[in-house]
Design a protein around this nucleic acid. Structure first.
Lengths: 165, 165
DNA sequence: AACAACAGTGACGTACACGTTAAAGATGCG
DNA sequence: CGCATCTTTAACGTGTACGTCACTGTTGTT
């Protein structure tokens, strides 16, 4: 019974996926998954005996999060790395849940997380603002041009009716 | 009097800037300005006799617009090119302001502009939505973590007062 | 006219974000 | 057990968005 000191929680059904399946599920390539790991965006997943990567549902969620940040929001991988590192810190604190002792250390980590979150929020707020301004501009332009189309349509209709007469 | 058919509007004070000044004003490098021109993001500006580029206020505005799209909104230059091309079409229509004849052609151009604007709006709407969701998530996380900080602070304060007693 | 400072055009270099082989080992299935 | 399929690492290739020379030509100042 010399188990390597792990897996004691009732491991009911912690699903694990190989890289191929994760790639299919998330829509990113295997290469990209390894790349993200290399760059520190993903924590090194477990491995099976042969060395194959085994991803958890958490990992899958995180990959989807990364893609969101990248594709829809235009963050660079470096920025995303900072953001997910903060996320990691949060996870650590949650798992390190011995509710007393080392309170000052815990306080400090929490404070750092708050700082990171605040910085992220600032960036996001700024982007939202810029985008909403754009949205307004675009809508205004669209309105004006749509009006012009109506005018043109009417002008053409008039021309047609004049030809007929 | 065989002028090459141009410049008849009272050209009161159309300011022109050389590339260096434009670079300073907009914060982009000269190299980038030439690059944008090469890629079709900026219309080729006027030149003076020696070949130096002369930018207008319109050009400067456009450069700032491009930077907004790129930096805050995460559009690629290819996407931006599409967007500013639509803008160009609008300008052309405004300048080509002979109010009758060729009405169907004008209608078609207007319709194309509307299509482009609608596509842009769709993209922007999507991004705004994604960002606002993020914003909510971040705020929620921040709330939770801030609560935890208060708890920790109180716990520490308690510990302190116990030491004193 | 001389001269520094600025601007022009290539051409090559670079950082990011992956894609694409290539070669070798691991797994699943009949 | 054999064999196709999958996964591994390593190395090189690619497109985007510029940066960095290097060298030539242009402008403003004295």
């Amino acid at each position: 019974m010399t188990s390597p000191a792990s897996e004691d929680q009732a491991q009911a059904k912690v699903a694990r996926y190989q890289i191929g399946e994760v790639a299919d599920r998330t829509g990113v390539t295997q290469r990209t998954l390894r790349f993200y790991e290399e760059k520190g965006l993903l924590r090194p997943p477990e491995r099976m005996d042969g060395g194959f990567r085994l991803y958890s549902d958490d990992d899958v969620q995180r990959i989807e999060y990364i893609r969101q940040l990248q594709q829809y929001l235009g963050f660079t991988l470096a920025e995303i790395k900072e953001m997910v590192e903060a996320e990691d810190l949060r996870q650590q604190i949650i798992s390190t849940f011995r509710p007393d002792r080392e309170l000052p250390a815990r306080l400090e980590r929490v404070t750092r997380i708050i700082g990171a979150l605040e910085r992220q929020l600032e960036v996001v707020d700024h982007k939202v603002e810029a985008l909403q301004e754009m949205q307004g501009d675009l809508r205004a332009k669209l309105d004006r041009v749509t009006t012009r189309r109506h005018e043109l349509e009417e002008a053409i209709a008039e021309e047609q009716s004049q030809k007929k007469s």
